[in-house]
Simulated assay, not measured.
Amino acid sequence: MSNRIQITNPGFDNADQERCAGNEVQIDIGNDISRQRSRNEDEPVISDHIVKGNLYQALFVEFLGTSIYVFIATIPYYDSSAPGMALIALIACFGKISGGHFNPAVTIGVSLCGRLSLQATILYPVVQIVGGLLGAALTRAVQPPRAYIDNEYFFENGITVLRKDVKPGWALLCEGLITFFLVLTYLMCTLEKQKTNWVLSSLAIGFIAQANIIAADFITRASMNPARSFGPAVCTSVFTKNVWKHHYVYWVGPMAGSAIAAFAWRCIHCQWSCCFRPK
């Protein structure tokens, strides 16, 4: 559908107008609703990826990415850099499709910053938790049964439980702090510009995640991710119930840290500038 405006010179009679058809100006105003609209400059980059038509694609990517991450993070390994390297690769590959959360805590942080729809805020954690269950199940599938029966802590790099003599309160604070660092880095790297460089952003996010893992491994085993903790807990609970003793730490800590990170991001970007303006 288009509107056409014809402008003719009224000084000509009909004969002159037939001879001077070149004086006729035609202007087409295209308002074809089928034409794809370009993104507004003020439109947030994350919401632009998760438009209604691509929500199912984004959900599948979050499910797949979380499964891969949890599998790599939970399988026993000697090189502790594996989770961080996996996160770098996954965000670089899938960030432009779903935002590359792979973590309910990150999703909550992005939502609190006003950069995610309510529908995506509800559905993202669901598929992430299911993906975490699949990733942990794959880890259990490739491990021999005796690894679980003979020694419940053979899977110690997979499950996230408190280290010996660590108090729950301090563990809660630790998980909150490292999740705060992770989510704030994510927000600053991906919500800063209209066009996010996912390769560079993935490096920053992967590095801070790996630094947190190295720093907090001997306290809480550094989860920062409820989906990463819940899946292995379910798969290991068949052999030991100790995994549920302080499991709330790996939900409350990351969610609180994520909320504080969103608050800090809003303060940095003057979302509540009225509170900080000099009078």
Rank of each mutant, 00 (worst) to 15 (best):
Q128P: 04
Q128Y: 13
I129G: 02
I129F: 15
V130D: 03
G131K: 12
G132D: 03
G132Q: 06
G132A: 04
G132V: 05
G132S: 06
L134T: 11
A136Y: 04
A137F: 10
R140M: 05
R140D: 00
A141Y: 12
A141Q: 10
P144R: 12
P144D: 09
R146K: 10
A147C: 09
A147Q: 15
A147L: 14
I149L: 09
D150T: 06
D150R: 10
N151A: 13
N151T: 12
E152T: 14
E152K: 13
Y153G: 07
F154K: 11
F154Q: 13
E156D: 13
E156Y: 10
G158Q: 07
I159R: 08
T160R: 12
T160S: 15
V161L: 10
V161S: 14
R163P: 03
R163N: 12
R163S: 14
V166G: 09
K167M: 09
K167R: 11
P168H: 06
P168Q: 07
P168C: 08
P168E: 04
G169W: 11
G169C: 06
A171C: 08
L173E: 05
C174A: 15
E175L: 06
E175Q: 11
E175K: 05
I178C: 06
I178W: 07
T179S: 00
T179C: 00
T179H: 01
F180W: 12
F180L: 13
F181W: 04
V183T: 00
V183H: 00
V183M: 01
L184C: 08
T185L: 01
T185E: 02
T185A: 04
L187P: 02
L187R: 06
M188Y: 04
M188K: 11
T190E: 05
T190A: 10
L191G: 09
E192M: 06
E192C: 08
K193G: 03
K193L: 10
Q194H: 14
Q194R: 13
K195D: 11
K195T: 11
T196R: 05
T196A: 11
T196D: 05
T196Y: 09
N197C: 07
W198N: 01
V199M: 05
L200N: 10
L200M: 14
S202C: 01
S202W: 00
L203G: 02
A204V: 01
A204C: 11
F207C: 11
I208R: 00
I208C: 03
I208Q: 02
A209H: 06
A209K: 02
A209W: 08
A209S: 12
Q210I: 03
Q210N: 14
A211K: 03
A215T: 12
A215Q: 09
A215N: 09
A216K: 03
D217G: 10
T220H: 06
T220G: 08
R221H: 14
A222V: 02
A222L: 03
S223M: 07
M224E: 00
M224V: 02
N225Q: 02
N225C: 02
N225K: 01
P226Y: 01
P226R: 03
A227F: 13
A227V: 08
S229W: 07
S229I: 08
S229V: 07
